[in-house]
Amino acid sequence: MIKAMDITVTVNGEVFQKTIEPRLLLSDFIRHELNLSGTHVGCEHGVCGACTILFDGMPTRSCLMFAVQADGHEIRTVEDLGTMEDLHPLQEAFQETHALQCGFCTSGFLMSILPILEESTDLSEEDLKRAMEGNLCRCTGYQNIRDAVQLAAEKMSSGGES
């Protein structure tokens, strides 16, 4: 048997202590051990970006990491954004511009874009492209996602006041 390991990881502000197999993928850990199934898995080889989470604040493919590598680290998933009744401005922007269809790739896009907008809402065309080109979407053709990011930037720059 493979020796299990103990890890302590902070996910969406909550501390979890778990005993897991060292080969458990971080994506499987998040989805099936923590039951945070908003993070999706689309390719398992780091290309599609659906499984993107924030790892110590950086957008990271959770399918390309082992859960044990997250020991002592901090993770944010889509569940850390808004709720159905109170969406985060980025989520609101996605709804308003119809930036999602089947919604499977969406959490990956949100988590890739979020830290960029949190850093600066003044995005150039190039920034915008870079924020998005690491994630695949088969439904939207990306146009409405571009619009959503721009709208979210507006919403987030007017920030607390609105």
Partner: peptide, 21 residues
């Protein structure tokens, strides 16, 4: 009209097959 289903999908609360436990 913006979509009824979006809040569930945007917050990770929509059920996909692999979410069935």
């Amino acid at each position: 009209i913006t979509r009824n289903e979006d809040p569930r999908l945007l917050t990770g609360q929509a059920l996909f097959v692999d979410d069935v436990e």
